[in-house]
């Protein structure tokens, strides 16, 4: 933890970056870590890193009010690193726009200044679903379509359309979301069954081939809808059908928008 704080102090003191986005202690008993924005070396004290630091801080890179503050160093979990690469592939982040401070479970800090170094770092990581995730996904996939429909109907019935999933997702960065289009209003505003289904299906589809499985949408959901199941299903489909994993390279074709004659599927021929 001290290595991280020292690194932050050094970066801010040397004005290499204007801000360090990291984790700080949340308020209250047993509160999870929350994001802190350190803008002076003296504030580096409040930086922490432990098992509770799960949020994908790359989400702040896309917020205009954060961008205004200048170049940032970002305390980056593996998911956040992949997010940075995916954002670069989508022309949202350019090389040298930020400095990633890759952290691992042991608290080891690796500064990664370029997208190329991030790519190299990510290439060495295990990006497969964890054993637990796999088991849960298999259980879900084993349901027949009718059971699956029922499952989601029950889950989505709780959806409040608060859009916390959207706010937490670093890849939901549109300045105007489809749900805010009201000329015409394709997705209904009220949180009724149809509207909830349409919103959640659309959210998942917009992440197909892009989601890096950070899990923040599900963590942000106040009513505990397992949104990660939709995302994980889609990313395993994309991997199986197009041999494509998002967030691995700063320059990558998007699985949903490109056609390659040597794609494994052949229905289009």
């Amino acid at each position: 933890m001290e290595t991280l704080r020292n690194k932050a102090r050094e970066l801010l003191a040397s004005k290499t970056v204007q801000m360090v986005i990291g984790y700080g202690r949340g308020s209250g008993e047993a509160a999870p870590a929350r994001a802190v924005f350190i803008r002076a070396a003296a504030e580096a004290e409040s930086l922490i890193f432990d098992a509770s630091c799960q949020q994908n801080l790359a989400v702040y890179l896309m917020k205009p009010e954060v961008r205004q503050l200048g170049k940032a160093a970002l305390v980056a979990t593996p998911s956040a690193l992949r997010t940075i690469l995916q954002l670069a592939a989508e022309n949202q982040v350019k090389d040298h726009d930020l400095l990633a401070l890759a952290v691992d479970a042991q608290g080891e800090v690796t500064p990664l200044a370029t997208l190329q170094t991030i790519e190299a770092h990510v290439a060495a990581l295990d990006c497969n679903l964890s054993a637990g995730e796999k088991t849960e996904l298999q259980k879900y996939v084993a349901l027949d379509p009718e059971q699956r429909r029922q499952f989601w109907q029950e889950e989505f019935a709780r959806c409040l359309k608060c859009y916390a999933c959207r706010g937490a997702c670093p890849l939901c960065y549109c300045s105007r979301c489809t749900v805010e289009c009201n000329q015409p209003q394709w997705i209904p505003v009220p949180a009724h069954d149809l509207g909830n289904l349409e919103w959640n299906v659309m959210r998942a589809m917009h992440l197909a081939g892009r989601c890096v499985n950070c899990g923040d949408c599900s963590r942000a959901c106040p009513v505990g809808i397992p949104l990660y199941l939709l995302n994980q299903r889609l990313l395993s489909e994309v991997l199986a059908n197009f041999n494509f994993r998002s967030g691995m390279a700063a320059k990558a074709d998007n699985a949903m928008s490109t056609f390659k004659p040597d794609d494994p599927e052949d229905f289009i021929r």
Binding site: E90, N91, Q92, Y173, C174, S175, R176, D253, N254, M256, S257, T258
Partner: peptide, 15 residues
């Protein structure tokens, strides 16, 4: 200040 609702992800370009 929006200029365009396009965020410049250029998925359209690849498609």
């Amino acid at each position: 200040p929006l200029y365009s609702t396009c965020v410049g992800c250029f998925l359209c370009q690849t498609s």
